[in-house]
């Protein structure tokens, strides 16, 4: 046997080195061209007239209002959708009922419906020409062209993220740990807090991060319902687009950089949490 050169012993699932390099190269190239290059371009454009110009454009009241509005929307819609998502995933994975498949399809609906259509639906339902909308306007609480409408549109568009992350995890984990906790005397709420939640926390975090990214970045649905009132209902993506249309590219790209940085912060947060809990992740993963 010793006359067989060692380098011929390759596991059946291992590819030839050349192919390995080629595949890695394609992946890296794709990442560089599609993700990294645009990001660099955005930064370069923002800093085209120097850091001072970029910072001055961000100090503009409209830009600051847009940042504040986008953060407000995320702060309202992400927690709400986290709660809705947990409730929906819980309901779907822990109970058997008629129409379950239909409910799962409904949860996915925002993924398949164009955000613009979703925005139009909200305008139709709550616009000042509709019954509900007219009454709300008369009460001095308009939905469309105001914060509530933008939040509703964002909630609709980001609804599936948390539930979609949780459902497969909760199906995989099954009921038995929760049942065990019940037999040990724990109340339903205690079971949720001490068993269910810790088991789904990573999936929940991914869902919340995705939900947050989309909530801050949503354009189509928000564009329809917001009315794009500068300094009032124009979110960051909408303000960026308006500035760009007005050939204010430094201002547009500076705001785009802030939006990109906000996304990066959430990613760093995730990476940091994973690093801090690495031991626990390894120990509690199924063998």
């Amino acid at each position: 046997m010793s006359d067989i050169p060692a380098f011929h012993h390759r596991s059946p699932t291992t590819e030839a080195p050349a192919l390995q390099w080629a595949l890695t190269g394609i992946a890296v190239l794709g990442l560089a061209l599609l993700v990294l290059a645009p990001l660099v371009a955005v930064f370069a454009e923002a800093l085209a007239d120097g850091a001072g110009a970029a910072l001055r454009s961000l100090a503009n009241p409209d830009a600051r209002a847009a940042i504040r509005l986008t953060l407000t929307i995320a702060a309202i819609s992400v927690p709400l959708n986290a709660v809705f998502g947990i409730a929906a995933a819980w309901f779907i994975t822990r109970f058997d009922f008629r129409g379950k498949a239909l409910l799962i399809t409904l949860i996915d609906l925002p993924f398949s419906v164009s955000p613009v259509v979703a925005g139009l639906c909200i305008v139709l339902m709550f616009g000042s020409n509709s019954l509900v909308g007219g009454w709300l306007v008369a009460q001095g609480a308009p939905v469309v062209f105001a914060l509530p409408g933008i939040v509703l549109a964002t909630l609709f568009v980001t609804f599936p993220f948390v539930a979609r992350e949780l459902i497969p995890v909760m199906i995989e984990q099954g009921r038995s740990e929760e049942e065990a906790a019940l037999t040990l005397g724990a109340s339903g709420w205690r079971v949720f807090r001490t068993v269910t939640l810790p088991n789904i926390r990573w999936a929940l975090m991914y869902g919340v991060l995705l939900c947050n990214a989309r909530a801050m970045g949503e354009f189509g649905a928000v564009a329809v319902v917001s009315g794009k009132i500068r300094g009032q209902t124009a979110t960051m993506p909408i303000t960026i687009e308006m500035l760009y249309q007005e050939y204010l590219s430094v201002a547009a790209f500076s705001l785009a950089v802030v939006l990109a940085l906000l996304a990066l912060v959430t990613l760093l947060l995730k990476a940091g949490l994973e690093r801090r809990h690495a031991d626990q992740l390894a120990a509690t993963h199924r063998p």
Binding site: S176, E177, A180, V195, P198, N199, T284
Partner: peptide
Amino acid sequence: QSYALFRH
């Protein structure tokens, strides 16, 4: 059956 120990 599969013990259902709390894995965390």
